[in-house]
Computed example of a mutant assay.
Amino acid sequence: MRIPQFGLGTFRLKDQAVIDSVKTALDVGYRAIDTAQIYGNEAAIGQAIAESGVPRQDIFLTTKIWVDNFAPDKFIPSLKNSLQNLHTDAVDLTLIHWPAPQLGVSIPEVMQLLLEAKQQGLTQHIGISNFNIALTQQAIDSIGVEHITTNQIELSPYLQNRTLVNFLREQNIDVTSYMTLAYGKVLNDPILIEIAAQHQATSAQVALAWALQNGYAVIPSSTKRENLISNLKAQDLKLSAEQIQIIAQLERNGREVSPEPYAPEWDQ
Rank of each mutant, 00 (worst) to 15 (best):
I191D: 15
I193T: 14
T223V: 09
T176K: 12
Y216Q: 10
Q200L: 11
R169W: 05
D189R: 11
W210R: 06
S177E: 05
V218A: 03
M179H: 10
N227D: 03
V175F: 02
Y178Q: 06
Q213R: 09
N214S: 09
Q205Y: 06
R169M: 08
A211L: 05
N227Q: 11
E226K: 13
V206S: 08
I229E: 13
S222T: 02
I195E: 11
L228C: 02
W210S: 03
A182T: 07
L164K: 07
N227G: 02
A204L: 06
N172R: 13
D174I: 10
M179G: 08
A182E: 07
L192T: 04
R225Y: 01
N166V: 01
E226N: 10
K233G: 00
L187N: 11
I191Q: 15
A234Q: 09
I219S: 06
R225K: 14
S177H: 05
N227R: 15
T176G: 02
L181F: 07
N166S: 14
I229H: 05
A209W: 04
I191N: 14
Q171F: 07
S203R: 10
A204I: 01
L208D: 01
V206H: 09
P190G: 08
A201E: 07
H199P: 04
V218P: 00
N188V: 09
N166I: 01
I195W: 14
A204S: 14
S230N: 13
A207F: 04
L228F: 00
Q171M: 10
N188I: 08
R225E: 08
P190E: 15
A209I: 01
E194D: 15
Q213H: 05
V175S: 01
I191L: 15
K224I: 00
N172H: 13
R225N: 02
L168T: 02
N231P: 00
L192C: 10
V175C: 03
L181Q: 07
T202H: 09
A211I: 00
Q198D: 11
D189T: 05
F167L: 07
